[in-house]
């Protein structure tokens, strides 16, 4: 604990020092011209981003189709349908939660494992880090096409390899198998982003003072115990970031789903973002707006619950 505060203090004095000296004269010296600097950003943001966000609430209580001149106010009935009798939305929600669950667990575990293995700054570690990070800069549509071929039931790489080594029994239809399809997409997502999150873990691991490991070893701690009682509690901030980011990413996996599941995606691969988009393209603007507000709420709730869960596991540790 003391060690972390020490490193923190070591990083920030430059930012702290001047502020103290300024306090008194601060208000007198603020040049009025400074107020002009955020104006372009604020104007664009108000008109083209914040305004439309508020309008989504306005649309959500209508049955507007997007082009008719008039529309009816339907109160909360859109929300009622979404919650109680919309199988498509519920299917998308279920798929999205499955996807989220698998990606968060697998991607966090894999990126942490890779980070632990590559935390030392040797030449080979640096090279491997660069390689593992590479898929993160590809567009999700590109990643989708790479994996479309991996998963192709007839000519795909995975089935060919399985056939080649005599494991024909394991050949699979992958995306063609409705029960499993979403998990196969989750795997592609992990492939694309584990290396990106590994970097965050490496930064966290490199902040842990070596003395802590040394004293743990002197106390006779095994490798696993050192991980469990030194590494895991001390990389808590990195874990929180990785989990939070992965969660948001799992709700945003729009491009990957369209690339692998088609446009509009088949039911077994529909997630919330693609569902809203499909409702919208079917000219149900009011209903899609209501879905988008429920979507925003779901993300907020899941993120909150997760922050709690992460905190709990780390207090336990």
């Amino acid at each position: 604990m003391t060690a972390t505060t020490e490193t923190r203090a070591g990083v920030t004095p430059a930012a702290d020092r001047p502020r103290r000296g300024r306090r008194r004269g601060a208000h007198g010296r603020v040049h009025p011209g400074l107020w002009f600097f955020p104006v372009p950003a604020l104007l664009l943001y108000l008109v083209f981003f914040a305004g439309p966000t508020l309008q989504a609430f306005q649309y959500s209580v209508t049955d507007w189709d997007g082009f008719s001149a008039d529309f009816a106010n339907v109160g909360t009935s859109n929300f009622g349908s979404i919650v109680s009798n919309d199988d498509l939305f519920r299917g998308a929600l279920t798929n999205n939660l499955k996807f989220l669950f698998v990606v968060v667990i697998a991607q966090t575990a894999l990126s942490l494992l890779l980070a632990v293995l590559l935390q030392r700054n040797s030449r080979s570690s640096t090279a491997l880090r660069a390689l593992f990070f590479l898929p993160a800069i590809l567009s999700s549509v590109s990643v989708a096409f790479v994996w479309k071929f991996m998963y192709d039931p007839n000519f795909g790489l995975i089935n060919q390899v399985l056939g080649g080594i005599g494991l024909d029994g394991l050949r699979s239809a992958f995306l063609g198998n409705a029960d499993q399809a979403i998990f196969w997409v989750a795997l592609a997502q992990v492939w694309a982003h584990a290396g990106q999150l590994m970097v965050i873990f490496i930064a966290g691991l490199q902040q842990i003072p070596a003395e802590l490991y040394e004293s743990a070893s002197l106390d006779g701690a095994s490798q696993w115990q050192r991980f469990r009682f030194v590494t895991w509690p001390l990389i808590a901030p990195a874990t929180a970031i990785v989990v939070a980011y992965t969660t948001i990413q799992s709700f945003k996996a729009f491009d990957l789903i369209l690339g692998l599941g088609g446009n509009p995606p088949k039911g077994s691969l529909d997630i919330l973002s693609t569902r809203i988009y499909t409702t919208f393209t079917n000219s149900k603007f009011g209903y899609a707006a209501a879905e988008s507000i429920v979507f925003m709420l779901i993300i907020a709730v899941v993120s909150l619950l997760q922050r709690r869960a992460v905190r709990l596991t780390q207090h336990g540790a």
Partner: peptide
């Protein structure tokens, strides 16, 4: 999320 204001 982008999906929440894309319609307006």
């Amino acid at each position: 999320p982008a999906q929440s204001n894309m319609i307006p």
